[in-house]
Write a protein that binds this DNA or RNA. Structure first.
Lengths: 156, 156
DNA sequence: CTATATCGACAACCATGTTGTCCATTATAA
DNA sequence: TTATAATGGACAACATGGTTGTCGATATAG
């Protein structure tokens, strides 16, 4: 009893759904004063969070090399979303924390995502959307942040 | 009457779902004799299809520049998934068609995607999965192939 | 016949990954 | 306490996949 639906549409729709939300987020974010932040940056800022992180830590949280995380941190610092700090207990560590601007972008992102979800709720109905989220939870890994974002395309 | 669910989880789950399927596809594809094909390649092969395409055409189908499409075609040709042909009616055009190996990878991909969908059907139930697909169709653009895949991350 | 559009080829550049090496610093074990 | 190991950060070299811009060859429209 196999389905008549081709399997290739499922990944496409999942990706398009992601794309639609992320594009809408960044359009709105740009309108609200953050035109420079890119999806990679958003994930990094989220992963750094209020506690701050070193490049090596961020790399582990994101599932990329510490060098790659370091480059992301560099550009985020250049854009004014992070400020660097030192750890008095460990002279090796260079901790990066969200600047005010960084925290603002994160807060705005959260509000925009909530708004976008509300639009989907409008379109699909609250029950269906909840079911969709529940179903996706069942077929995806638990840890939501360690998404290995930047490496998923290309490469070995 | 807003939902208690945070909006940021939705894009994450959509992406993770995509990731899970694509990773599983390429694991299995590697096992079945295609260890070198990458997600980008899969989309390109799909877009080239049985009719073949030039670099400029592929670029339009995929929503990237003809130069970017040309690079993808180069690597696919190097890997033996495409063969080049000429157009007797237009000396400028260099048409690329699927090699036997290319067609084989596409056929295997389709079978694997069907299998993966069957596994989700097992996990979620046929009704729920159909509902999930229907709902995603309602919130995503119609044209499923022009996915602008490679450009969605980074860049302006 | 001439003007315009398109194709493919290059080059230069950017962003984001990767590995590998190296030194300074910290932690650990003998 | 001291030798060894692990960690953090910097830097270099490289791969991939995107971009724009230019340019000559070929087609097509007027």
């Amino acid at each position: 009893m196999s389905s008549d639906r081709p399997g290739f549409e499922l990944p496409l729709r999942l990706f398009l759904g992601f794309r639609v939300l992320i594009d809408a987020l960044h359009d709105e974010l740009a309108r609200q004063g953050h035109p420079d932040v890119r999806p990679v940056h958003g994930f990094a800022l989220q992963a750094i969070g209020s506690e701050g992180a070193t490049a090596a830590e961020l790399g582990r949280r994101l599932g990329v090399s510490k060098q790659a995380a370091g480059k992301t941190i560099d550009s985020l610092e250049r854009l004014g979303y992070l400020v660097r700090d030192t750890d008095p207990n460990d002279a090796r560590r260079k901790v990066f924390r969200l600047s005010e601007r960084g925290a603002d972008s994160l807060a705005k992102s959260a509000a925009i995502f909530d708004q976008l979800r509300a639009e989907w709720e409008e379109a699909l109905g609250a029950d269906r959307l909840r079911a969709l989220e529940d179903d996706l939870r069942r077929v995806t890994p638990a840890d939501p942040l360690r998404v290995d974002i930047p490496g998923w395309f290309g490469h070995t």
